[in-house]
Amino acid sequence: MKLDATDRRILKELQRDAGRPASEIAEIVNLSTNACWRRIKLLQEEGIIRKQVALVDAEKVDMGLTVFVEIRTSQHDEAWLERFSKGVSQIDEVVEFHRLNGNVDYLLKIIVSSIADYDRVYKKIIRTVPLHDVTSYFSMERIKETTEIPLDKR
């Protein structure tokens, strides 16, 4: 599906607040409510809109510590990767899990309530498979955080 400017404006508005009715978004993007609703449904069917969620304030639910974890391994075989991916993906506190190129093999973003809570998660991670090096970085301040994908064509 090729996105046009109207689709991009709809997506931009949905990323800001997906809870608004289609009629409100339609007015902003200058479409009829039915036309806007049909476009939103098509964006969902095509998988461009994967799902709609509520964004929870981590601080207000006592999960205010963000930890970034770099992982290096000396093993790069498929069986190891499968065990590692499966094990880490099952840890709820891991909210992002990336395989990288360069000096670091994997990067995790973990949300926990405290350093002791992180230690519990760390122990789960190191039980999954043998690891060469694990380095943790505790976020001191969240300067910018967004879930919005930039959609403006450059």
Results as ranks from 00 to 15, higher is better:
L81Q: 05
D105H: 03
T147I: 13
I49L: 06
I91A: 12
I149K: 09
D133R: 09
L14K: 08
L42S: 14
D17N: 11
G19L: 12
T147G: 13
D105S: 10
P21R: 14
K12D: 03
D57G: 01
L151T: 10
R72K: 08
R142I: 14
E13M: 06
A79F: 15
E148D: 05
D17P: 10
W80T: 04
D119W: 08
Q75P: 00
E82G: 00
K41D: 09
S139V: 15
R38N: 15
K144R: 14
R9D: 07
Q44D: 13
R99D: 03
I48K: 05
I91H: 08
V129F: 01
V129N: 00
S32C: 08
A18W: 03
L43G: 11
Y118K: 03
G19V: 04
V94F: 06
S32A: 02
D77G: 09
E59T: 12
K86V: 10
K60I: 11
F97V: 04
I111N: 12
T135A: 08
T147M: 10
I28E: 05
A26I: 11
E27N: 15
V67K: 06
F97I: 02
T128W: 07
L107A: 07
Y118C: 09
T33D: 06
E141D: 14
V104R: 02
L14W: 03
S114F: 07
A79W: 13
I71A: 05
E24H: 12
S23I: 05
Y118N: 06
I49Y: 06
S32I: 13
Y106M: 00
